[in-house]
């Protein structure tokens, strides 16, 4: 199935969880946050959160700014 991660299309196996996506993206232990369809998902819920086809995923991290 296809999902959208930070505006880019990505293929994931059916029934994948957010944890699986995090692993694929090699997200670090700290300093990132993830939202699915504009809903922030706390890290402790990643393994229980399944991904649906077409899901809009946003992954953010720290940036410089005032």
């Amino acid at each position: 199935m296809q999902i959208i991660v930070n505006n880019k299309a990505m293929e994931m196996a059916e029934g994948s969880t957010l944890s699986a996506l995090a692993e694929t993206l090699r997200l670090p232990e700290k300093g990132v946050a993830v939202a699915i369809n504009n809903q922030m998902i706390p890290r402790e819920e990643w393994s229980a959160t399944g991904l649906q086809a077409g899901a809009q995923v946003v992954v953010i991290k720290a940036a410089c700014g005032g």
Binding site: N6, L27, V59, I60, A62, A63
Partner: peptide
């Protein structure tokens, strides 16, 4: 110290400012 947020660029991993 302030810190902003941005979307991770999946193709170009970069230095972690944090």
């Amino acid at each position: 110290v302030t810190v902003a947020m941005k979307r991770i660029d999946l193709e170009n991993p970069e230095d972690d400012m944090l």
